[in-house]
């Protein structure tokens, strides 16, 4: 059963950037791609649990602020060591003036 959660307004995130979103004891990273699409992943890097919110978004990659591991935030795929394990991703949608993420 799908469970859509209000996360933020579209303008809360600059293009090619991300914000942190915490909900029900969990932490997420919500991205806005250069094309204006929104994506969501788990908030913490799979390498050493550093939050990605202070990281750098380049095109469709998020780079962890601590060890420079990289993920494709569209698929969650770890694309540069020391990140080896993929990030979990979540569906997003824009409903009215809100960005929502789907938690199962």
């Amino acid at each position: 059963m799908s469970n859509w959660i209000d996360a933020c307004a579209p303008d809360d995130i600059e293009p090619e950037d991300l914000i942190r979103f915490d909900h029900a004891g969990r932490s997420f990273a919500i991205y806005r791609s250069p094309e204006g699409e929104f994506f969501c992943t788990d908030g913490f890097c799979t390498h050493e649990s550093v939050h990605l919110a202070d990281g750098l978004v380049m095109d469709h990659v998020i780079e962890c602020p601590k060890h420079n591991g990289q993920f494709d935030y569209r698929t969650g795929e770890a694309v540069r060591p020391p990140a080896c394990k993929n990030l979990r991703i979540y569906a997003t949608r824009v409903e009215g003036d809100r960005v929502q993420i789907e938690l199962s």
Partner: peptide, 10 residues
């Protein structure tokens, strides 16, 4: 050494 340096930063 990629991993020693990651540990050095951690």
């Amino acid at each position: 050494w990629r991993w020693t340096h990651a540990r050095h930063h951690t």
